[in-house]
Write a protein that binds this DNA or RNA. Sequence first.
DNA 1: AAGTGGGTCAACCGCGTACCA
DNA 2: CTGGTACGCGGTTGACCCACT
Length: 220
Amino acid sequence: MGDQPAEEAPSGADKSIIKSGGGGGGEEVEVRKGPWTMEEDLILINYIANHGEGVWNNLARSAGLKRTGKSCRLRWLNYLRPDVRRGNITPEEHLLILDLHARWGNRWSKIAKQLPGRTDNEIKNFWRTRIQKKVKDGESGECASQMIAADDAGGSCSHGGAGCLDGVMTTAQPNFPTYPNAVNSAGAHGHEAYAPAYSTPESSTSETYWNFEDFWPMQS
DNA sequence: AAGTGGGTCAACCGCGTACCA
DNA sequence: CTGGTACGCGGTTGACCCACT
């Protein structure tokens, strides 16, 4: 993998200079922002496999990643962890999210703990893009709860299919980290990269996409 | 065929909390 | 007890793709 040079500045990637902490050191460190590259992921995964997670700022420095500890932590927790489940929210999960949100509100991390393999970020996005919108629509049409309940039951409400989730939460996808590099070669946006690979298995072996499950055994 | 708007997702930012010296 | 540092969480933004006009 090392033969493919990591693009120092993939589209959207940004660099900035920050002062490293420690009070008085004043050492300036270049920090990368934006989408993660495959090489960065490899470095992070390798480092955590060897040293374990935690102490993120130190980890970022030691691993040679030009990222903040925060960024490393986020990337690991949301995408690189082996137990992260990517893909569509199942009806059961949907129901659970609704229930837990009704109980706890926007305590996404708390809710995520009840959904093995799901991340707070994923649940948060799901809520904002699917449920919140639907509730909003329902406010004008007075049947938000009906719509949600109908969706959970695999049915539909009088609002029709505009916000219907039925079609999108039936299958779970395996882990497929995404990269801006893949965008360049495949002409697809990062988060879309795994979708065609998933729906058309014959294309999943393309060098453009790489299966996370293929990758993990390498770490041990 | 081209342009526009909406939807989705990944990543960043700021704040609060916990821990340690 | 106080100050500093790191971590974790929730909110927000930016970029891209797809569907519709």
